[in-house]
């Protein structure tokens, strides 16, 4: 029998270190970690990338990625990333955050880093629950969703409504690119990869701030199989958090974030004419 030539079709991304992660079976963090690492490999930027990990399930991310890593306090990753990027504008800086981190305790940092248009990339995992602490209500938990701290379902008359981050940030002038994706099917995974890569590319090209929201699942704390989790996500989360591009200044035909902001400013005299007044 003639020997068949081996062809390598799949391997671990180099910038995703060969270590055991702490993620549960069926968790989407693993997929998104891989997409970030593939992006870093494909862009050839591991040597100049600095990642910032949050507090939450991805807290140990500093051990998983091969680039230089910083562990931030809960919610503060965008502020930490700002500090790094201001010192080293030529480095590629990303923060990887969950919903509690980004949309609850760190909302101020999220909003202000976005409105400053910091030239960094944020990967946002929205799975509508606090995973690491064991399933409490998140800022993105849906109305009526049962969690450990909303045992009768999220009561909007008391707990209010979820935060839609992409929509919220799209009201700001600072962001260059905002997209919401998910990773439940191969097609969606490919799309998510494209979005993540675009975010990094925009940073490298100096276009500016980007945030890629990945609508995700938490089989463990939702109490479902991974497949049922995806089904629940599709039925409940995607209608509430529609996938799509919420901001892409270049695709929208602007030259830059500054150009888009100027056109939004109407005829505000100081904005249009410039100069200190």
């Amino acid at each position: 029998m003639a020997e068949k030539e081996e062809k390598l079709v799949f391997e671990r991304p180099k910038s995703l270190l060969p270590v055991v992660t702490n993620f549960c079976p069926g968790c989407t963090h693993g997929i998104v970690h891989r997409l970030v690492a593939e992006t870093i490999d494909e862009l050839g930027i591991e040597g100049k990338t600095v990642g910032v990990t949050p507090v939450g399930c991805s807290v140990m991310g500093y051990n998983f990625f091969g680039c230089d890593m910083i562990e931030a306090a809960h919610g503060r990753a965008p502020a930490v990333a700002t500090g790094v990027k201001r010192v080293r504008p030529d480095n590629v800086v990303y923060a990887y955050q969950g919903d509690g981190d980004l949309a609850s305790i760190g909302t101020a940092e999220t909003v202000h880093t976005a409105t400053r248009g910091e030239n960094i990339t944020i990967i946002f995992i929205n799975n509508a629950i606090y995973g690491m602490t064991g399933g409490q209500m998140a800022p993105t938990s849906l109305p009526n969703q049962v969690t450990q701290t909303s045992p009768y379902g999220r009561d909007t008359s008391s707990a209010g409504y979820p935060v839609r981050i992409c929509e919220l940030l799209s009201t700001l002038d600072g962001p260059a690119y905002l997209e919401r994706v998910c990773v439940d099917t191969p097609a969606h995974v490919r799309k998510a990869k494209k979005a993540i890569k675009k975010g990094f590319q925009y940073q490298i090209d100096g276009v500016g701030y980007s945030l890629i929201e990945v609508v995700s699942t938490c089989p463990t704390n939702w109490g479902m199989t991974p497949q049922d989790s995806f089904e629940w996500m599709r039925e409940n989360m995607l209608p509430y958090y529609p996938l799509g591009v919420y901001r892409d200044v270049l695709a929208e035909g602007y030259e830059s974030v500054a150009d888009a902001a100027l056109k939004r400013a109407g005829d505000s005299k100081i904005v249009v004419e410039g100069g200190a007044q």
């Binding site: 931030a72 503060r76 502020a79 930490v80 201001r86 940092e109 202000h112």
Partner: peptide, 18 residues
């Protein structure tokens, strides 16, 4: 910074970056 909390965390990042 947007807050004292953000300011000290920017210091954390800047110091980490050398």
């Amino acid at each position: 910074a947007e807050s004292e909390i953000a300011a000290i965390n920017m210091v954390y990042g800047a110091s980490a970056a050398g």
